[in-house]
Design a binder for these strands. Structure first.
Length: 744
DNA sequence: AATCGACATGGGGATTAACT
DNA sequence: AGTTAATCCCCATGTCGATT
């Protein structure tokens, strides 16, 4: 059985009725019966089959998005945080069209006003050249950040393998022309001949607009744009998604997310005027299969099927939902970003998403994902932590980078990670061999957030850029990180989601060898209120702390104490850290390490980096167990003992209170072992929630049984300390399997 | 050498005003 | 009225000299 998180049950439990339906991105749907017990809700009948079919295993991640009416959409990620390749049921039509399948995500194109005037500019002595005299037109007022956040939230779930960008309509767009995001323009449009582009709606409507391309990389929709705006009744605050279709003619498929209907149709894209009306009336269907989608089966002029899945591969949607602010990157979101292993792209431009995409295009075997459309897309993760934080005008990397050289690198480097979908779908499933980086913002964040999701392309630097732009000279190392290392490190960092405000940092030489660490401006502004100076505490997962001075003049930085922290934690160039602000009052950051050198292992090993995600999750799962039995938090060992004493089970179990110091073995009470455990050397499986450890069981003097090899790792991995109480419940006597409940 | 403080700089979105 | 392109100016962060 699988327990439904209490947080979700408390919010939506009443409307859940058995059976529930789990729908996967491939379109398959599973009926699962619910079981309610003591206020808890469990997936019961049908779950084992589901689990078996998809070969769910230890450390897999499942993301459940609640659609209402006891229906969930589910994403499954394996222990390497790669979304599994689901057995798919594609309509015949879809299977044929795999052209032009690019996975560029231009997700954060929600510029904000830059009208705030900075003093230092206004105070310039300014012998500037004479300016043109301008008429004093009343200025148009750009969208407020709140409006954009709302718009963003609604469009955020849109995912496509094709290159696309999203734009929140500004007054100047409605009354003038549209500037395309520079990054997108440079990647996809700079080599286009001057001419026209087709803006096509899913229902067949089409408009011709002039595509003006400037040398500096600016591209605008001009003549015809206003007609498009008018005909489709676009308003300020609406969000348009432009999906590039490269065919005989340059065309964009356009989807609308009306800003004014945010409350009613949050995630449903509208069409043009007709679609808008339909959406106004709240009649968009929830697509449980492609046939339900308003755009199902439609062909664009280039003969392309425009269906692309709303895949949450970009740190958006799911992850963002969880922590929209850098989150947030999340703008942050629980989506496990998929980072492509681009070993096959070894030339200088192998990071160029366009080229990657070209290869994708050339692969006729690449299936197109089924489109799913989630109205009222709700996710536990997302909903719990989502706060629509204002987005910055400029797409910014969540990874602070103080090297100017990196700022000048081509934005085309941003997305090294496209996804090549496996050519075949086999059962029960096939792990996708390639990964895709999230190109966007955080949040679970903003994350998702935090915005690991901020790893976007347009404008800012993606983390990929940061890595790839490092040269040996800059890095001060003999060679830069291998791509697989980078990808996995990023992947793992992206997979990390925090309930706290957090920001990731990819370590550059200057961070380690210099005396300071630059902090992301957005994070500081959002969470630290631009404090000028204060002392903060950096705490790592084993509880060790370092005092560091936070300074903020123009550039927010950790200064005094930073070098000590970096040195004592053996930080290396290429390591990734996530700084979680776990205590706003004391300004305590918990620092989680993602070692670049360990990334490829992607294991759950304890220690800094290698098992960072797991350690955090473990710590939190411990808290859940504890609170579950204590009816509230408590810090005293006495409470832990008392709570443990309340434990009852029909299975045999024994209790152990951890003593002073760390022991590498755990003695099993003879009173227990003599009855239930065969006295022989064997491997025991320990379970904490759904996490599993293998520990050696050894026989000692007088047949005393001890957990030895592996116990230390278990203890460390679960952050066991003196006074903690563990209850070991025997689940299987033949192949010794113990479920461990930890009380602190 | 480490730290601090301030400025410089490039990118790029938003807006406006001149032009057609 | 529509189009075009210049301009504004915000943001992020790199750089450097002064100070400790």
């Amino acid at each position: 059985m699988q327990k439904v998180p209490m947080k979700f049950v408390m919010k939506y439990g009443e409307e859940l009725s058995s059976p529930v339906y789990l729908r996967l991105p491939c379109g398959s749907e599973w009926e699962i019966e619910l079981r309610r017990c003591s206020g808890e809700v469990w997936f019961e009948k049908g779950w084992p089959e589901f689990s078996k079919f998809y070969s769910l295993d230890y450390a897999f991640w499942l993301v459940f998005g609640y659609e209402g009416n006891s229906r969930f959409h589910v994403f499954i990620f394996d222990r390497s945080c790669t979304e599994v390749d689901y057995p798919i049921k594609l309509p015949e039509k879809e299977k044929a069209d795999y052209e032009d399948d690019e996975s560029v995500e231009i997700l954060d194109d929600f510029p904000t006003s830059r009208r705030r005037k900075r003093e230092r500019y206004s105070s310039l002595p300014c012998p500037l050249p004479p300016k043109k005299k301008r008429k004093s037109y009343p200025r148009m007022h750009p969208l407020t950040e709140k409006d954009k956040a709302i718009a963003l939230q609604r469009a955020i779930a849109f995912k496509s393998e094709k290159p696309h960008f999203k734009v929140a309509m500004q007054p100047s767009y409605i009354f003038g022309n549209l500037i395309l995001p520079a990054g997108f323009a440079k990647r996809h449009l700079m080599h286009q001949p001057h001419g026209n582009a087709i803006l096509r709606l899913p229902d067949g409507g089409a408009w011709c607009v002039k595509l003006k391309i400037y040398e500096k990389g600016k591209v605008r929709f001009q003549r015809g744009w206003l007609e498009f705006v008018r005909d489709n009744n676009l308003k300020t605050g609406d969000v348009c998604v432009f999906i590039l279709i490269k065919g005989i003619e340059l065309a964009f498929e356009v989807l609308f997310y009306r800003g004014t209907e945010a409350a009613n149709c949050s995630l449903s894209p509208g069409g043009h005027a007709k679609g808008a009306r339909a959406m106004d009336q709240g009649k968009w269907e929830i697509g449980t299969s492609s046939s339900h989608h308003p755009y199902a089966g439609k062909e664009c002029s280039g003969g392309l099927n425009l269906e692309t899945g709303y895949e949450d591969h970009d740190d958006k949607s799911v992850e963002i939902l969880d922590d929209l602010c850098p989150r947030k990157s999340r703008d942050k979101s629980l989506v496990m970003p998929k980072l492509e292993e681009t070993d096959k792209h070894d030339d200088d431009s192998n990071d160029d998403i366009s080229r990657d995409s070209d290869e994708v295009q050339d692969d006729p075997t690449i299936p197109e994902e089924e489109e799913t459309d989630y109205e009222d897309d709700e996710s536990v993760e997302i909903l719990d932590d989502y706060s629509p934080c204002p987005r910055k005008t400029r797409e910014k990397s969540p990874l602070p980078c103080l090297h100017k050289k990196m700022r000048t690198c081509s934005s085309s480097k941003a997305a090294e990670c496209n996804t090549n979908f496996p050519a075949t779908k086999t059962q029960p499933y096939e792990i996708k061999k390639s990964f895709r980086s999230k190109d966007s913002y955080c949040s679970k964040s903003e994350v998702k957030k935090h915005d690991f999701s901020t790893m976007k392309e347009v404008g800012g630097l993606s983390s990929s850029q940061i890595f790839q732009k490092r040269t040996p000279d800059v890095l001060g190392r003999e060679h830069s990180l291998a791509k697989s290392e980078k990808a996995l490190a990023l992947q793992r960092a992206n997979a990390f989601k925090s309930e706290y405000p957090s920001f990731p940092v990819a370590f550059q030489p200057s961070y380690i060898h210099s005396s300071y660490l630059g902090l992301p401006y957005e994070f500081v502004r959002t969470h630290l209120n631009k404090q000028r100076s204060s002392n903060v505490i950096l705490q790592i997962l084993d509880g060790s702390t370092w005092p560091v001075n936070f300074k903020y003049d123009v550039t927010p930085r950790f200064q005094n104490g930073w070098s000590v922290f970096a040195r004592e934690n053996n930080l290396k160039v290429g390591d990734l850290c996530v700084f979680e602000l776990i205590n706003r009052n004391e300004l305590t950051f918990e620092v989680v390490f993602f070692r670049a050198t360990e990334a490829k292992k992607c294991s759950s090993s304890a220690g800094h980096g290698g098992g960072a995600i797991d350690q955090v999750e473990i710590k939190r799962s411990i808290c859940k167990v504890k609170s579950g039995y204590e009816n509230g938090p408590s810090d005293t060992s006495l409470s832990a003992v008392e709570a443990a004493n309340k434990f009852v089970s029909s299975n045999p179990f024994f209790r152990v209170t951890l003593g002073l110091g760390s022991s590498r073995v755990l003695r099993i009470p003879t009173s227990f072992s003599k009855h239930f455990i065969e006295k022989k050397i064997q491997i025991v499986t320990l379970w904490v929630d759904d996490r599993m450890w293998h520990v050696s069981l050894t026989v000692h003097w007088r047949n005393a049984l001890k957990l030895s090899a592996g116990w230390a790792a278990f203890a460390k991995g679960n952050c066991l300390t003196e006074g903690d109480v563990c209850i070991f419940e025997l689940l299987d006597r033949n192949n010794i399997s113990l479920k461990v409940y930890i009380f602190r």
